[in-house]
């Protein structure tokens, strides 16, 4: 049961297993274990960023391509829901339309960028995605009629997700919202775990190790890379939609900025590239650091994380998870 749920990709280390179980239980009972608006918000952000980091790891760790446009897809998902809820009013139909439109746009853009630049080398793809993502961020802040410009959009959530809604005593709309975020994130994570452990995932790893050989065996690397970037884009868009559904606002700073891209990179690399569990550990670590370490390390906490990032790339390319698994 557990084996098939995790797609036969068990943690393979007692400490890692313990850590993952702790994270899972912690997030599952977060509203009761750590009451308060702030900690609930942190828990929801952890769920969203786990999906986002895991989808980025699908590209970086499994396929070996660096995309700087991952926040763009995240933002598309968030703005899809935000714009639909603003325009159509707070209903579930608007959420469905927003998620659908975000997904379609994200996948279409991923195909376009992929076909354009994935035939070339890693470095081209990295540069082109950086350029496209920054153009998109500027576009989003320019089209203020649609996106609310720099300020972003604030909108009302469907009635069932508001704090005033009571499903039953002691279980209000915010909690329902949290559990939607939690379970959808969990499902997406398990889904991605399934993908990377499928034959398709093996082809991706073969491309990462040696694209030339993978092509020679008969796999069209362009097609596989493009598919991988589409899946990652779709997952990132869904993560964005979850964030929009949780925070009731979407702005360039919280969804599209390069800072978020830096966060995702830090999560995946420090947590461990090439394992979905790495993304989980990294996301938990970084979101906690952002919210609680600031007091401990001062304003320049990003400096220390940046140094940790560089050390990880040199000395621990498999990150925290890789270290734990070696024991």
């Amino acid at each position: 049961m557990l084996k098939s749920l995790l797609s036969d990709d068990l943690p393979k280390s007692r400490w890692l297993a313990l850590l993952l179980v702790a994270i899972l239980i912690g997030l599952a009972v977060a509203p009761f274990l750590f009451p308060g608006a702030k900690s609930l918000n942190v828990a929801a952000r952890i769920c969203v960023f786990i999906v986002l980091a895991a989808s980025f790891d699908l590209l970086l760790g499994y396929t070996g391509i660096v995309s700087f446009a991952h926040t763009m897809f995240f933002g598309i998902g968030a703005y899809g829901v935000a714009i639909a809820l603003t325009r159509m009013g707070p209903g579930w139909d608007a959420v469905a339309v927003g998620v659908g439109a975000g997904l379609v746009l994200a996948i279409a853009l991923a195909v376009l960028i992929g076909l354009f630049s994935l035939r070339l080398r890693t470095i081209f793809f990295a540069m082109i995605t950086l350029a496209v993502a920054s153009a998109f961020a500027i576009l989003a802040s320019q089209l203020s009629d649609l996106t609310g410009g720099e300020d972003g959009l604030n909108y009302r959530l469907p009635v069932a997700l508001r704090p005033s809604f009571k499903l039953f005593e002691g279980f209000n709309g915010r909690l329902l919202d949290y559990y939607i975020v939690f379970f959808v994130s969990l499902a997406l994570l398990l889904g991605m775990l399934r993908i990377v452990n499928s034959p398709f995932g093996s082809v991706l790893m073969a491309i990462r190790e040696n694209p030339f050989r993978a092509e020679a065996i008969g796999y069209r690397t362009v097609v596989y890379r493009t598919l991988a970037s589409c899946i990652a884009a779709a997952a990132a868009a869904l993560a964005g939609a979850l964030l929009a559904l949780w925070s009731a606002q979407a702005s360039p700073d919280t969804t599209l900025s390069f800072d978020i891209m830096v966060d995702i990179l830090l999560m995946v690399v420090i947590g461990g590239m090439g394992t979905m569990y790495g993304a989980v550990v990294g996301a938990v670590l970084l979101v906690l650091a952002q919210n609680y370490l600031q007091a401990l390390l001062g304003d320049r906490w990003l400096l220390w994380l940046g140094l940790a990032f560089i050390l990880c790339v040199y000395f621990f390319p498999t990150g925290i998870v890789g270290r734990l698994r070696r024991r």
Binding site: L60, G64, V66, R121, T122, I123, A126, V262, L265, L266, V269, R300, L302, L303, L305, G306, L307, F309, I310, V313, Y314, P317
Partner: peptide
């Protein structure tokens, strides 16, 4: 340390950018 490894180059120089930007702020 990362000659000839494109993926690591992109990552590590981006890391350098993060650190340098923070140092500028310091």
């Amino acid at each position: 340390p990362v000659y000839g490894q494109h993926l690591k180059q992109i990552l590590v120089t981006t890391g350098g950018l993060i650190v340098a930007e923070q140092l500028l702020k310091v």
